[in-house]
Amino acid sequence: MFEQWLGKQLRSPRGILAKWVASYMETGNHDINEWTIQLLDVRPHERILEIGTGSGAALCRIAEQLESGKACGIDSSKSMVKQSLRRTRNIREEGKAELKLGYAENIPFDDRSFHKVFSVHTIYFWTDVQQALKEIYRVMQLDGTLYLSIHLKDQMKKSKKTKDFALYTEEQIKRQLEESHFREITVHMRKNDCCITAVK
């Protein structure tokens, strides 16, 4: 029962325990977030979008590496956006970050806004993967790169909390990316983690 409740909360934390869920996610995602940020190879001038900011930990890490660039983020949970806004107040005041309530399927940013887009552990919750990839493609600059980090499907299936998640193999994601006109698709592996990169 608890595992299923937690799975629903991971999709979109809300209610009095949202703060605890955010802390749980931040701890559990720390290693894959750090690995993904390494792969991003952040440049000081870049505009980078995170889909699914959670409490804003990864966004803060990226903003630290920016000078003229900007770290932007969206999350579908009002509770998470509130937490992220509190956490990123200083870097937002410096003009290095921007946060909005939003969904992968309807990204509230202009065409060709970002050099890089990344997302860690959110594709399981997208209601329409093709529409989400279409939106990501739209907001990316030409030659921009997408980074999608996940746990492998077989690993995720072992947990009761992922019962209602939409799980994908790296091959399934690669196929979706190809159908959405992405190119130079590469699979990076680390233990049970997988990051799939693709260029517009």
Rank of each mutant, 00 (worst) to 15 (best):
residue 167 L to S: 09
residue 173 I to C: 03
residue 3 E to P: 00
residue 117 V to H: 06
residue 98 E to P: 00
residue 35 W to Y: 14
residue 108 P to Q: 03
residue 179 E to I: 06
residue 162 T to I: 08
residue 131 Q to P: 00
residue 107 I to H: 10
residue 143 D to H: 13
residue 111 D to W: 10
residue 36 T to C: 05
residue 129 V to T: 15
residue 98 E to I: 13
residue 138 R to F: 06
residue 74 I to R: 03
residue 124 Y to S: 07
residue 95 G to S: 05
residue 93 E to H: 11
residue 109 F to M: 04
residue 58 A to S: 15
residue 184 E to S: 12
residue 63 A to M: 04
residue 77 S to C: 08
residue 177 L to C: 02
residue 139 V to D: 07
residue 43 R to I: 08
residue 25 M to G: 01
residue 146 L to S: 03
residue 142 L to R: 07
residue 73 G to L: 05
residue 187 V to P: 01
residue 43 R to M: 12
residue 178 E to Y: 04
residue 103 Y to P: 00
residue 159 S to A: 14
residue 98 E to C: 13
residue 120 V to Q: 05
residue 14 R to D: 12
residue 68 S to N: 12
residue 90 N to S: 12
residue 169 T to H: 04
residue 28 G to T: 04
residue 115 H to R: 03
residue 86 R to D: 10
residue 162 T to S: 15
residue 24 Y to G: 00
residue 140 M to D: 06
residue 183 R to K: 14
residue 199 V to I: 08
residue 2 F to V: 00
residue 124 Y to V: 07
residue 109 F to A: 03
residue 195 C to N: 12
residue 78 K to N: 02
residue 167 L to H: 06
residue 17 L to C: 06
residue 23 S to G: 11
residue 152 L to W: 00
residue 65 Q to K: 15
residue 127 T to L: 07
residue 13 P to G: 07
residue 40 L to A: 10
residue 100 K to H: 14
residue 51 I to L: 15
residue 116 K to T: 03
residue 103 Y to T: 11
residue 98 E to Q: 15
residue 91 I to P: 02
residue 42 V to K: 02
residue 17 L to G: 11
residue 47 R to H: 13
residue 44 P to M: 05
residue 51 I to F: 00
